[in-house]
Design a binder for these strands. Sequence first.
DNA 1: AGGTGTGAACACTTTCACAGCA
DNA 2: TGCTGTGAAAGTGTTCACACCT
Lengths: 210, 210
Amino acid sequence: MSRKVSESTVRRLSLYLRILEEMASPGGTVSSEDLAERTGTTAAQVRKDLSLFGSFGKRGLGYSVEELSGRLRAILGLDRTWNVAMVGAGRIGSALFEYSGFWKRGFHIVAVLDADPAKVGRRWGPITIQDASRLEEVIGGAGVDILILAVPAREVHAIVDRAVAAGVRAILNFAPAQLKVPEDVALKHVNMVMELEALSFTLSQDRKER
Amino acid sequence: MSRKVSESTVRRLSLYLRILEEMASPGGTVSSEDLAERTGTTAAQVRKDLSLFGSFGKRGLGYSVEELSGRLRAILGLDRTWNVAMVGAGRIGSALFEYSGFWKRGFHIVAVLDADPAKVGRRWGPITIQDASRLEEVIGGAGVDILILAVPAREVHAIVDRAVAAGVRAILNFAPAQLKVPEDVALKHVNMVMELEALSFTLSQDRKER
DNA sequence: AGGTGTGAACACTTTCACAGCA
DNA sequence: TGCTGTGAAAGTGTTCACACCT
């Protein structure tokens, strides 16, 4: 047990938790072997990952599904809710807003902003779209933990700078743009084109090899 | 120059290309230092990545923006178009379909399928939504290279099995589910909840450390 | 001088293998 | 016996540092 948790470990923890929650018998137990099988990794990897945070298993038995779920939720910070603000009320923003998976996991979208006057004032369920100029106010006032950026790439830099200045601590960016943020601001990208390009690369390589 | 190209190298190649294409002077030249700066990596990393595929630079000068772009496009398989079929005509599918970034990069959505009879037959621009039962036909017939899955998690396994059996070679999955595919099928996930959970983890850790 | 290409050193991650506990 | 927890070994990916070319 120690610090220094890698990116890939966090991804796997997230996976383990999902698998545990999908399991039929929450009162039961699960082995590292089982978990590895279902998440596409190895038993040793599962045990190493978990051992970074404590000893949750029983030798000869495995892990209690219920206990391990709880531990993972605590480790991942999912034993609470997070306030999320979203900038960009276009197609992608709207799809994300409707997606129930965020809410279920405790990510509550508490504000939506857009720079387009035609969109400002519209209601999305309980939320009224606000003008993007109110970004600082929203971040400062509403206790926003995470900012989702669903705006075009060219607009994203300016918004990030303002958001960081206003004190945001975590950003999830959907725009295909490299962002520079202070190192105490957590930043993740979702880049669908990049994933497609990785597939394209693999397909091309395969062709060459035969 | 050799084989054995890592995941992370491919991601960075994709990034380099985007930066090159955004550059003001396509006739100009760029140093590994420049590229590193703009993509958030190091000059040595840039040179290592590129050297896996050849020697594209001129010592003392740097890389020709135009030539390097071309090389990267060829390496990534972007010097052609790819036929993409999409299963799932819901919110996310619709947002992806509208997103112009795919088309610009040569990823052409040639078919959209959905299991919901209410959606089948609707037109999205030039495309008519087909019944999901036609998956095999579409994959076999239309020369589909890549399959995008924008369906709920519980439906995704069955579709993948059918798609693989029908001969699909690459899959981009948006559903939060672990998929098992033969190793000659390329598979990528886009998992927004997982990214949020990684942010949640970081935010929680930060709090603990102080 | 300036910047690439690359072997060698280093750092990090994964896998192995086994002691130790239920 | 069965399966965890973990040092040590192996494997990968990144950074350094410098020879080499323009």
